[in-house]
Nucleic acid binder design. Structure first.
Length: 274
DNA sequence: AGCACTGTTTACAT
DNA sequence: TATGTAAACAGTGC
């Protein structure tokens, strides 16, 4: 369930349950999910460590320990789940962290794309491999229409796939890219490097506003997805185009269209977006 | 049954 | 370089 608002929702909901918890045991059922260590090395580094903080960069969760960092990514369908008592292994459970308090943190992932990385504490977070090539989040200082104008300079193709490029804008995925483009009135196939600074200023504002609203509503729940604690987000009620093929546009009643761009379904209103 | 589709990212080809 | 495609995988729906 991972675009920036969903990951932020996971971070916020998990935080009170994991901060100051000390790890008693770690079980990795699917070793390839841990990319930096084998299961015994992962276990050895984490047991006895206390979680000091849980932060986020883009769609990555960053778990802070006294002696190391764990960076996890939910990819398509990763979910964390907290239990106050030990449970039998759950379907699609791949990692379990047992705390000394008796509390348990379980990672479930039907498609098994999620990842865990463990690193020694660096001087700069941005030097770590999963984070080093990432662009600016819409909430970062420096994110602006001018920044986008500069970054889009070499991008001759449709803007939609460019919005998904995490080395430029950090945190947008397929849902919010469509919604941000609708908000900005920009057609998804418009060439990125041909969009005026004025329109990119508007796009930058839309990115901030759409993500802010989505975070406030606990993210988007569509299809079978739900957030970490089993509670649905509410932003699906605020969608204007994504998943709404053939539905009348909420603004002008024109049926919403769906096309494919770089292999991803892309929804837009041909009347509102140019 | 078989294919298309899925909130992501990566390697690889052109 | 930039961009498109396939792949990692499992499940759902038509």
């Amino acid at each position: 369930m991972p675009e920036l608002p969903e990951v932020e929702t996971v971070r916020r909901s998990l935080t009170p349950y994991v901060i100051n918890q000390t790890i008693a045991d770690v079980t990795v059922y699917l070793p390839r999910m841990v990319r930096t260590h084998d299961p015994s090395g992962f276990h050895a580094h984490l047991v006895g460590q206390t979680i000091n903080d849980l932060t986020r960069r883009g769609k990555h969760l960053i778990w802070h320990f006294p002696n190391c960092l764990m960076i996890s990514h939910l990819r398509m369908e990763g979910k964390f789940f907290v239990s106050e008592e030990s449970l039998p292994k759950m379907p699609h459970e791949h990692v379990r962290i047992q705390f000394t308090s008796g509390r348990v943190l379980i990672y479930q992932d039907v498609r098994t794309f999620g990842t865990f990385d463990l690193y020694d504490k660096p001087a700069e977070l941005s030097t770590l491999k999963p984070l080093k090539d990432l662009g600016l989040e819409p909430f970062d200082a420096g994110f602006s229409g001018a920044y986008l104008h500069d970054q889009f300079n070499t991008r001759k193709g449709p803007i939609k796939p460019v919005l998904l490029d995490q080395t430029i804008i950090l945190g947008l995925g397929n849902i919010y890219a469509d919604e941000v483009l609708f908000c900005a009135g920009i057609h998804p196939t418009r060439k990125a490097n041909k969009i005026s600074l004025k329109r990119l200023n508007n796009l930058a504002d839309c990115a901030k506003n759409v993500l802010k609203k989505a975070i406030e509503l606990g993210g988007t729940t569509i299809r079978t997805y739900e957030n970490s604690l089993g509670i649905d987000g509410l932003f699906q009620n605020e969608l204007y185009v994504h998943t709404l093929e053939n539905e009348p546009c909420r603004v002008c009643q024109t049926p919403i269209r769906r096309i494919k761009l770089s292999g991803r379904s892309t929804y837009y209103c041909k009347n509102c977006q140019h």
